[in-house]
Design a protein around this nucleic acid. Structure first.
Length: 638
RNA sequence: GCCGAUGUAGCUCAGAGGUAGAGCAUUCGAUUCGUAAUCGAACGGUCGGCGGUUCAAAUCCGCUCAUCGGCUCCA
């Protein structure tokens, strides 16, 4: 499991899908796809009108719009995007026809060569023999095509300005080699329902050894309302950004002085992590797991045996020298769990063994891919390995699915997308082994009653796997949990158990993680709740606000009492006025504040204000505790 | 790593060759206050780092570090 990129448990990348949910109901998805694809063409046309030296490459649609990759010596600036947008509106408003033409390989080749569009030539060469080749015109085919058009435009406009958008004479056209489909007229696009978003570097054909191109991203919708809704959703995502909230709520930091991708958990974040870990341990002990702690480094030989040095090297930090022996900081926990297993002789009667560890691993990630808590260089996996008999696989997998559901739903994630990935072309293990394991995963999912998508050939080379994605409060999906069968490590480490007949047999090894990485899961939690954590997770649950300093002694006594009952409570001793104290508590997103003034001291009560409901009235400590307990039991916000 | 952008006080940001600024936070003083900002003062900076150009650099140039948006979608 531990070697390849398609290994999701160990894939530390954000794995958030683009906003797959439309902000508004899409009336006609097929038409929208055409609109987006045509938008890409119109953008390319606009770019070549304004910047004729630019070469075109490809321009597909995305979940929210489109992009086009260009080859141009100078980078596009934000001002360029404004100009391009204006030029696109011209083209849209001109309502030019879009004409599909089937062409032969030979004739289109000549035309592309005439234009010196080398990338297009490469694309043409990659189209399989026998496939229909089409080109799409924007405007009349009689009009010629850029850069011929450039000449015509120069004739039409004696001093064609590259700053101002250029009006397209009806006789001018632009075309692109394209499979389509497209809309029929540019006017079908609402000029106020698209916008250009950003410029980014991208490699030709996604290959970093090839030319670096400039990609312009755009978003396009059926109506301006949809666009507005989409932009609002983007704003919402920005508002929830865990990096911003992490700083504002003093949860964690990543510091230049220490290095990128290394996380500092500050007291409030650390409190939450403690709660999460504590919950996780109890849940695992209840589910029949035992806990392990293993070292952070080990002799490099171990990583040779496990195969990581061969297959995972590019994600590993360099080894260090200790008394002439090479030691490696761990990028994975599994070899340690295997060594723990191998330290004893095991009988079939002991199986299954379920060993869990919050294991901190370090992986080299290229500086450009680091991203807040979502992609870091040091992180803690909620790792576990199950060693079992072949006959126990389905039962164990079902157990993992049940535990996963319990844990994820307690953290507020109740919608899942499940994938079952099967044997890839290159793999280890026997046919029977794969069939047995894959059937067991399938059976477990069916027993659980979960629908899933099968990703044929998408498994790791060492075994089939189940991945579970969760859906957050604004409809984004995140990959966290994964369950993987491993035929490789037991073989490499020559793991055994003693079977009923006294023979030595190979146990089945299952890797699984529910959060994936604590750092990443925490980042997702912050974004899911937008920093308004449910009471059971909130680092400060209750803050007492004395109306004046006179009430401090009473407030302190209440704090002591609540603390003794296990609540996370504090008192505001800033001496600020009540309004300011409330404002501060609101900004810190503290779920409950208890106001103590003269009245409360006299009646031995508290005036309660919650962040969700505002002022909810006066109660005594017992009543407060009761309502807190009720909310804590439900694991919701108050 | 690569392409582009951004780094100014603890935070959010202004300043664009000529004395380093604001609000919030912090500290001190006054105020003792009833459901989202009391008033005043003080403190706070090698303008990310290193080097260069210049009489003069936060500002221009080079390198470097970090952060942000991308680098999967394939005519």
């Amino acid at each position: 499991m531990c070697y390849t990129d398609n290994d999701n448990r160990y894939n530390n990348s954000p794995m958030v899908s683009q906003l797959t949910q439309s902000p508004l109901q899409i009336a006609n998805l097929e038409q929208l796809e055409r609109i987006r694809h045509t938008c890409a063409h119109i953008m390319a046309m606009a770019v070549q009108i304004l910047f004729p030296e630019t070469k075109v490459t490809i321009g597909p649609t995305t979940d929210t719009g489109f992009y086009y990759d260009f080859d141009r010596p100078q980078p596009f600036t934000p001002e360029d995007l404004t100009k391009i947008t204006k030029q696109m509106r011209f083209i849209i408003k001109a309502n030019l026809p879009i004409i599909r033409e089937e062409v032969t390989r030979e004739e289109i080749k000549v035309e592309i060569e005439k234009l010196n569009e080398l990338y297009k030539l490469e694309i043409l060469d990659s189209i399989p023999e026998g496939e229909t080749i089409t080109r799409y015109y924007i405007g009349s085919p009689d009009g010629g095509r850029l850069p011929d058009v450039g000449e015509k435009l120069k004739a039409a406009f004696p001093e064609p300005s590259l700053i101002k958008p250029v009006k397209i004479p009806p006789t001018v056209s632009w075309w692109d080699l394209c499979a389509g489909p497209h809309i029929n007229y540019t006017g079908e696009i609402n000029p106020d329902a698209f916008t250009l978003e950003s410029v980014a570097g991208a490699y030709w054909r996604g290959d970093e050894t090839k030319a670096q191109l400039q990609r312009i991203y755009g978003t396009a919708w059926e109506t301006p309302e949809q666009l507005k809704a989409y932009l609002k959703q983007q704003e919402e995502a920005k508002r929830r950004d865990h990096r911003k909230l992490g700083k504002e709520l003093k949860l964690f930091s990543i510091q230049e002085g220490a290095g990128g991708g290394l996380v500092f958990w500050h007291p409030r974040g650390a409190t939450m992590r403690y709660i999460i870990e504590d919950y996780w341990r109890k849940a695992h002990l209840d589910a029949g797991y035992e806990l392990l702690y293993t070292p952070h480094i080990a002799n490099l030989e171990l990583w040779k045996t496990s195969g990581h040095l061969d297959f995972y090297r590019e994600n590993m930090f360099d080894s260090m020298d200790i008394e002439q022996q090479a030691y490696q900081i761990k990028p994975m926990n599994c070899p340690f769990h295997v060594l723990t297993y191998k330290n004893d002789l095991h009988s079939y009667r002991e199986l299954p063994l379920r060993w869990a560890e919050l294991g901190t691993v370090y992986r080299y990630e290229r500086s450009g891919v680091l991203h807040g808590l979502m992609r870091v260089r040091g992180f803690t996996q909620d790792d576990a390995h199950i060693f079992c008999l072949p006959t126990q696989i389905a039962g164990e997998i079902l157990g993992v699915l049940n535990l996963t559901e319990k844990i994820l739903s307690d953290f507020g994630f109740k919608d899942y997308e499940v994938n079952l990935s099967t044997r890839p072309d290159k793999s280890v293990g026997t046919d029977e082994g794969w069939e047995l394991a894959t059937n067991a995963l399938d059976r477990a999912l069916n027993t659980k009653g979960w629908d899933y998508l099968e990703d044929k050939g998408g498994g790791a080379f060492y075994g089939p796997k189940i991945d579970i994605k969760i859906k957050d409060a604004i409809g984004r999906t995140w990959q966290c949990s994964t369950i993987q069968v491993d035929f490789n490590l037991p073989e490499r480490f020559d793991m055994e158990y003693v079977a009923a007949d006294g023979s030595r047999q190979r146990p089945i090894m299952i890797h699984r993680a529910i959060f994936g990485s604590l750092e990443r899961f925490y980042g997702i939690l912050i974004e899911n709740y937008a920093g308004d954590f449910p009471l059971w997770l909130a680092p400060i649950q209750v803050r007492l606000l004395p109306v004046s300093e006179t009430q401090r002694p009473y407030g302190k006594a209440v704090v002591t009492m609540l603390k003794q009952s296990g609540y996370r409570v504090e008192i505001d001793c800033t001496g600020e006025r009540l309004g300011k104290q409330i404002r501060n508590a609101e900004l810190e997103k503290i779920p409950v504040v208890a106001i103590v003034g003269k009245r409360e001291v006299e009646t031995q009560t508290l005036s309660i204000r919650t962040r969700q409901q505002g002022d909810i009235g006066t109660m005594n400590i017992t009543e407060l505790k009761e309502s807190l307990e009720e909310v804590l039991a439900k694991k919701t916000n108050i």
